[in-house]
């Protein structure tokens, strides 16, 4: 056979086989490949009057079903893994009926260096370029952000591309299930998006990082450090999107910003005094930008300043959620008047 034809056949067959296997892997390991899932909770039917914008930290940090029941409010949102204001902003345009917008942020969510896996699928390229130019982002960061866009095309063929963490965690969890009966093993699965269920429904959300083994702690720290390249910044596209969201929320009705805490361990490892100052400055700027917005600083709650209240370095566990939800409701007793 002609060597050139042989090579074309080989490449075609390899691409076909690997694409099929890649799809099978994502399906069998349950790796999320769709960017968002709409959810709604609370009384009544139809579209909600409250739009919740937040990442998995918001889902774990506050019991939205309970909040919705207590305040008799219908709340809706779109869950995107690892999301931030850049992604939430796209869904704000869809929440047309919402009179109240609740933005749940933290020093983790607003860190420009943590990028959502689905960013390119949610945020248009034009918006990203505009934000990068406006925030005068440096070239390495811009390159990192822009390279997510071609990745979406590669993922049409190989959905596992760039999702090696998901593949490895999936494989590990499946192996654990096989041997769990023999050896009691701790799970190292990542967070899942769950806004309209109580934390206690998922076993791992009862864990406390204070009881983690040092090895597990170090692995998770290394993984987070790698994900954000060991850097924190709050002056890029996420900040711009956050400010736009606040202004839009104000135009639609009222804006409520909830600042969530991260674990003391995360604070110790990543939030240097300089980083903390920059984060506070970003929040102050947002406050000045939309003075009428209501701010709930759960990050200043001394009670939550304990590793006992986190199942992960940034996600609150069911105990933390209880404390945070009570505090949140306590601070928003007049919430119904916001409607």
């Amino acid at each position: 056979m002609n060597r050139r034809l042989e090579l074309v056949i080989i490449i075609s067959v390899v691409v076909a086989i690997t694409a099929i296997i890649s799809r099978s892997i994502t399906a069998s390991l349950g790796i999320e490949t769709t960017p968002s899932g709409y959810w709604v909770t609370g009384p009544g039917a139809g579209r909600a009057s409250v739009f919740l914008a937040g990442s998995s930290l918001a889902g774990d940090g506050l019991a939205w079903k309970e909040i919705s029941d207590v305040l008799n409010l219908r709340i809706e949102g779109w869950g995107v893994a690892g999301s931030s204001p850049s992604e939430w902003e796209r869904f704000q345009h869809l929440a047309t009926q919402a009179k109240v917008t609740v933005l749940v942020v933290s020093s983790y969510d607003l860190n420009e260096y943590f990028l959502s896996d689905f960013r390119a699928e949610v945020v248009p390229l034009g918006q990203t370029i505009k934000d990068l130019r406006q925030s005068r982002a440096d070239w390495p960061y811009s390159k990192r952000l822009l390279s997510l866009y071609p990745l979406t095309y590669l993922r049409m063929l190989y959905p596992t591309a760039g999702r090696s963490d998901g593949v490895m965690v999936g494989v590990r969890e499946n192996l654990r299930k096989l041997v769990r009966a023999v050896f009691p093993l701790e799970s190292e699965a990542g967070p899942t998006l769950s806004f309209n269920e109580t934390a206690s429904t998922q076993e791992y959300k009862k864990e406390k990082i204070s009881s983690w083994s040092s090895g597990r702690m170090l692995r998770r720290l290394a993984s987070l450090r790698s994900a954000c390249q060991g850097k924190h910044a709050f002056n890029g596209p996420k900040r711009l999107a956050f400010l736009r969201m606040l202004r839009q929320a104000q135009e639609q009705g009222r804006a409520v910003v909830v600042v969530l805490p991260v674990s003391p361990l995360y604070t110790k490892e990543f939030l240097t005094p300089e980083v903390k100052r920059e984060f506070e400055e970003a929040l102050t700027e947002a406050q000045h930008s939309v003075p009428k917005a209501r701010w709930v600083h759960l990050d200043q709650l001394n009670e939550l300043n304990s590793n006992e209240y986190f199942w992960d370095l940034v996600h609150m566990n069911s105990y933390g959620q209880k404390v945070a939800t009570e505090a949140f409701l306590g601070q928003l007793m007049d919430f119904t008047s916001l409607q």
Partner: peptide
């Protein structure tokens, strides 16, 4: 062999 290489890169390769 090439299938194994491609699968390793697309399934296990570090993103950044």
């Amino acid at each position: 062999n090439y299938t194994a290489l491609v699968l390793m890169i697309t399934g296990l390769g570090a993103m950044d």
